[in-house]
């Protein structure tokens, strides 16, 4: 087994065992979506209209909150030192950790979103479009969030700071994710245009996140 596949397998094991918290993100997502009607009222037409945006905001917050331990656990137990010394390129290590984190935490959000869309009284087309945009967009959130996780790795209470650092960077993903999801139901606007940009943002952050994250981790030891 190569170094990186061993890392992926270990990260998945850690996420799915007791205390790994893989499904905690999905639970938080459910709560965010449930709380919205208490704020805006149970008007089903209104909920259907804002549904895609609510699902996106819920997924964004759930992703960010689950990211603060991405590198911190490794730093606390000394494993990060060994990773830094190793032969595996740090950028690829960050990439693999992000992919494992997304599989354990982001993918459940995507799977939960059609169910939560029912709470928002969304139409089948809107549900499908929102789920698809989340499938393409949540990896981008994880990769961008990993930069914040790497920057705050040595801070005791980095969780809130992480959100503050990363939220502005996720604005483009939010904008094109929600516009693609709403474009699917509103006739004149094409779905493909914002969706392609969203996919492009995903690929771009897949490069930017690991490079910037690895640079931040290299300097965290000093």
């Amino acid at each position: 087994m190569s170094a990186l596949s061993a890392l992926f397998v270990r990260e998945m094991k850690l996420a799915t065992r007791v205390g790994g918290g893989a499904l905690m993100g999905a639970l938080f997502f459910l709560i965010v979506v449930t709380v919205v009607p208490f704020g805006v009222g149970p008007d089903l037409n209104l909920l259907a209209r804002i549904g895609p945006a609510i699902l996106w905001i819920g997924a964004l917050l759930a992703t960010l909150l689950s990211l603060d331990r991405l590198f911190q656990a490794d730093r606390d137990d000394g494993g990060l030192d060994l990773v830094l010394m190793g032969e595996a390129p740090l950028e690829l290590v960050v990439l693999i950790k992000c992919l494992a984190h997304w599989t354990a935490t982001g993918l459940p959000l995507v799977i939960a979103s059609p169910m939560l869309a029912v709470f928002m009284n969304m139409e089948p087309v809107a549900i499908g479009a929102t789920t698809l945009t989340l499938l393409v967009g949540t990896p981008a959130l994880t990769f961008v969030g990993a930069i914040g996780a790497a920057l705050t790795v040595s801070l005791r209470r980095g969780g809130l700071l992480l959100a503050i650092l990363v939220l502005p960077l996720t604005v483009p993903v939010m904008i094109f994710g929600v516009s693609a999801a709403t474009a699917a139901v509103q006739e004149p606007v094409p779905f493909a245009t914002p969706f392609s940009i969203l996919a492009a943002l995903g690929l771009f952050s897949m490069v930017l996140g690991p490079i910037a994250g690895a640079a931040a981790l290299r300097h965290a030891g000093d």
């Binding site: 007791v18 205390g19 499904l23 905690m24 449930t34």
Partner: peptide
């Protein structure tokens, strides 16, 4: 239901 899930999460998180 959410409260149940929260309780299960709490029990699962503390070893």
């Amino acid at each position: 239901f959410i409260m149940y899930l929260g309780l299960i999460a709490l029990q699962e998180t503390i070893e």
